[in-house]
Design a protein around this nucleic acid. Structure first.
Lengths: 245, 245
DNA sequence: CACGCAATAAATGGATACAATTTAGCGGTA
DNA sequence: TACCGCTAAATTGTATCCATTTATTGCGTG
């Protein structure tokens, strides 16, 4: 969608501004202000805002305009439940329709990458982007193996809720045990898939995702300030789900 | 979203035109033509089209405009898989967070309504709208009982794929056995929920939805013409999912 | 001082005008 | 006749302008 049209550029720019926290939840989005900030007119901006509203990043009230959607902590945990269910579904579906060798090898390679990154016994800030990318690719690989484009689309939508994306790796050095456990899940999931044990992979994946959500929410409840500070978002990788088919 | 603004009205009108088949899959949507047909200018129409694109009803290519999205039969069955998974999730979640008596009674009342409609031993066209409404309410009640607004939203999105909505009741008199079996599922689901057996309810619900998809797809493959002719859509009830929270 | 109302400012929604791109039609040439 | 390129019409994308609604400010009154 992005590329040449001003509306597409504005959509990407606005999405990134929201997800990166430049625009705060609840804050109204003034069309004049933002359009001149982006160097475009209000027309393409309004197209972008309509798009992002359906994406779930903005809310709209007639004659009162758009504002950045805010999410309660309670709401965030509930999205994680959906994401956990969907990704578990992906494991079952992937096994059901047969995983080809290329995918199995890809998973093995990815797990090895994770091993290497964590081999130092800690995960410092410099390694975060790489680990994040690894994590995204691992999950994406499984979702694609399910051969159901809608899964990709629906999981992608859960990522539109701030803080739910698997681009987010919350744990740092002080929680290395947690991230190590999380990566151990990756090992077990990959093995279960290799053994065509879809149910087992699904069970691990469900817990894997749901626990991540609970850990995040726990942190948010205890120390919102610090949690937000530690959050770092990926660069604008192609996380916009394709809606082909 | 609908109500007073031209964009909202256009969105609703366009959605209905697409779902009712007035606009054919793959057909490009000409802005001049449609805007004068709806009696509005292109600006709100474009807002509506951006919205419906994110809803999944239109596809967009830059500088080439919007087209009515087309769905392969294979794609339709895959959406039913998602819907089945999500509604099964709803059953589990509903039991987990406790179903109040009002909801149990509502389900009982709804099931009784279904009994009455089918008591004649057939389902003729005159009864279709009522049975459709009953079906929608039954499923919605369970989804709401899960107390996870995102479930409502995500299931709602599956309904944006033409033919996947539970507003669609395919079977008529000639397939009364099928619809009777389907309603028997309703009975069993309600009973399992009353007994707080979330897993059992989920299993029945999953099969309930998935089989409906398979039956529809079978028909589509055998006799697309006749299937489409028999399909009748509900009036524009409020099936647009609220995105509050 | 508080409350209410009115006038004014500001922001949104929609329509029109203009620019850029694509598509279709047409003619010429090998 | 088939193919290529050019021109013109059609269609989309953007900007600007106007109307309508909402928010704000300030004044007057109780």
């Amino acid at each position: 969608m992005k590329g040449k049209t001003a509306a597409g550029e504005a959509t990407a720019a606005l999405r990134e501004m929201i997800l990166s926290g430049q625009l705060h939840p609840g804050q109204p989005v003034r069309q004049n202000h933002l359009s001149e900030l982006l160097g475009i007119s209000r027309t393409p901006l309004r197209t972008a805002m309509a798009t992002l509203t359906q994406d779930g990043l903005l809310s709209y009230e007639e004659n009162r305009g758009y504002r950045v959607k805010s999410f309660s902590v309670d709401s965030i945990i509930k999205v994680f439940e959906i994401r956990a269910g969907l990704e578990a579904m992906a494991c079952r579906a992937a096994v059901r329709c047969g995983i080809d060798n290329a995918t199995i090898e890809e998973l093995d390679r990815l797990v090895t990458i994770g091993d290497r990154i964590l081999s130092s016994g800690s995960l410092d800030v410099a390694d975060l982007p790489e680990y994040r990318q690894f994590n995204v690719r691992f999950h994406d690989t499984i979702i694609n193996a399910a051969q159901n484009p809608w899964l990709h689309e629906f999981v992608g939508r859960t990522h539109n809720v701030p803080l739910v994306s698997d681009r987010i790796i919350l744990w740092e050095a002080d929680d290395f045990a947690l991230i190590q456990r999380s990566h151990d899940d990756h090992h077990r999931i990959a093995r279960a898939l290799r053994n065509s044990d879809g149910e087992r992979a699904a069970a691990i994946m469900h817990e894997h995702v749901q626990y991540a959500g609970e850990a995040l929410v726990d942190r948010l409840r205890n120390d919102p300030e610090e949690t937000f500070r530690k959050l770092a978002f990926s660069p604008p990788t192609a996380n916009t789900c394709q809606k082909d088919q």
